[in-house]
């Protein structure tokens, strides 16, 4: 298994163009942003102060903020497209390069797909963690320069609270990324083309992101207000709701009459795990039966 993961890792990471544009662009973008800020600071402290205000003001918030790319609705409607494009391109790339015929006889199909899902998820998680660290470093440097405070002051308690929050956020981000990876794999397996997989997976993802509004509309059209209750089964609802529990200790407030707060934390986490397991099982079943004819 280690060898298989190393093989996946190597061929994915060495695909510089793809990882460069769609994965490393995130931490490199953060780095670039703060480099420009610091250089601008040589000429104008006001300008630099303006750029610094893009942060949350506290380092714990800045560190967690990078995960917003896969967690922070409605920003995610667009920002998810980057990891999705990467994942779809990686899965569909195996069809386009004609490599499945070389890979499948060498290992089990299920393991080949699982290793791929693990590697694409891990790569994006690493990029987001790098973005976390760079954001804190950039904000820290700017604030030091301007003599601003960067709260909260580090102490044992603050740090252990932060570690818990970060781990919870990363866990949630990991679940969200795995759901995206499974969707991308499914779309690539079904379409065998990068472009078609992109379109399908963007469609899926947007449906999920906007599920709340779509359900509200359906409820109006069919005069069935209970339809909105289905929202509790979508990945989007449970990602938002679990974040709310982690951040504030309370369920997510929802704008529905019949359903005005999100479910329990346990329900939401279980629901996300069910999505991961269900989509993964579907991916494996479809791939296992597929004829590789190109």
């Amino acid at each position: 298994m280690i060898n298989l993961l190393r093989a996946e890792w190597k061929k994915t990471v060495w695909n510089y163009k793809l990882t460069g544009f769609l994965v490393w662009a995130v931490p490199v973008g953060v780095l670039g942003f703060y480099m420009v800020m610091l250089m601008g600071g040589l000429f104008s402290r006001e300008w630099m102060a303006g750029m610094l205000q893009t942060g949350s003001g506290i380092w714990t918030g800045d560190a967690v903020g990078a995960w917003g790319m896969v967690l922070a609705f409605p920003f995610t409607v667009l920002s998810r497209l980057l990891p999705l494009a990467f994942m779809a391109a990686v899965f569909a790339g195996e069809y386009q390069s004609g490599m499945w015929k070389n890979l499948i006889p060498r290992n089990r199909r299920a393991l080949l797909i699982l290793a791929k899902m693990a590697v694409v998820t891990a790569l994006i998680a690493i990029a987001l963690m790098a973005a976390s660290a760079l954001t804190v470093a950039g904000q820290g440097a700017g604030r030091l320069w301007l003599g601003w405070e960067y709260n909260p002051p580090v102490s044992g308690d603050v740090f252990s609270d932060f570690a818990v929050l970060y781990a919870q956020t990363a866990l949630l981000g990991g679940l969200a990324l795995t759901i995206l990876a499974a969707m991308a794999a499914l779309a690539a397996i079904l379409t065998r083309s990068t472009l078609a997989a992109l379109l399908v997976v963007f469609g899926f993802s947007t449906l999920d992101s906007l599920a709340m509004y779509i359900l509200m509309l359906l409820a109006r059209i069919f005069s069935l207000p209970e339809i909105v209750n289905l929202y509790r089964y979508t990945p989007q609802c449970n990602i938002d709701n679990a974040q709310s529990w982690f951040r504030t200790g309370a369920a997510l407030p929802l704008p529905f009459e019949t359903f005005s707060t999100g479910p329990d934390l346990g329900f939401s986490l279980a629901m996300l795990v069910i999505w991961v397991a269900g989509l993964t099982a579907l991916v494996l079943a479809v791939f296992e039966r597929q004829d590789i004819t190109a």
């Binding site: 060898n3 490599m99 070389n102």
Partner: peptide, 28 residues
């Protein structure tokens, strides 16, 4: 097996392609 024409990752070297395939088979 060599099935219907060779296929490789164009961005990897010949040696790295073989390494990736060998590792995939857990036999590097």
């Amino acid at each position: 097996g060599l099935v219907e024409g060779p296929a490789f990752y164009g961005y990897l070297s010949g040696r790295n392609n073989l390494e990736v395939l060998a590792r995939t088979a857990n036999d590097y």
